[in-house]
Amino acid sequence: MLTKRIIPCLDIKNGRTVKGVNFVDLKDAGDPIVLAKKYAQLGADELVFLDISATLEGRSTWLQTVLEIAKEINIPFTVGGGVRSVADVNMLLQSGADKVAINSAAIKNPELISLLAKKFGKQCIVIAIDAKPINGIWKVHLAGGTKATDLDLFDWAKTVENLGAGEILFTSMAHDGTKKGFANKALAALSETVNIPIIASGGAGSVADFITVFKSGKADAALAASVFHFNTIQINQLKQMLHQHEIPVRL
């Protein structure tokens, strides 16, 4: 049986893992390579590595850090941040990334998704979507959550699926860093809207939040950062608890 995935996310700025609340107020959370190895050993199903300053500062992701992590770990590995072109994706895959997450560049140029899916296969194209409700409607944001767009979350999700996205990484900006649970209603609606896997992100605070995101939010995977970085939740214990609640996980 296909299992639900637990995915620690390493937000990287200036070579360090950082974590903020609602996308701002960043705190240092350690060396990304040390954390990546630790998470792989504890049973993480996948890692996501986001160079969160890349789009804003207009520079490419640190290929060297990607390479160092890829050498060390034996679980799949998604890289995002500032990915804009076929050449960017090619370089990341050549540096050992298994999948690439694209956010702003896909909004600015949706055709990029089909181009990448055709060249590299849809399975390695993860479309990251940052959204929050504005007047009750979930609106997509770009450039690390700093700019609102007119795009509706569900319309955009359907569009990226049709263009060839292999997976959606949905971050609720309203929940991110709050530790009050995931955006389960929006997640469940998203799962009804598209037929590709959904990674839930934003709001993990307790083991119960993970149980709910799989049961009510219908997520295929759950991503979190600070609860793992600051040892609030241990991945191996979390997966044991999920197993006890009859959620299929790799133990």
């Binding site: 296909l2 199903d45 790799r250």
Partner: peptide, 28 residues
């Protein structure tokens, strides 16, 4: 959901390629 993405089990293992691998081992 397509693609299938994640860890699933392998079973009915044959040949030495799977020597030492227990049934229902997880693969990505």
């Amino acid at each position: 959901k397509v693609p299938q993405m994640g860890w699933n089990t392998i079973n009915n293992l044959k040949t030495n390629l799977f020597k030492g691998i227990k049934p229902n081992e997880y693969m990505y």
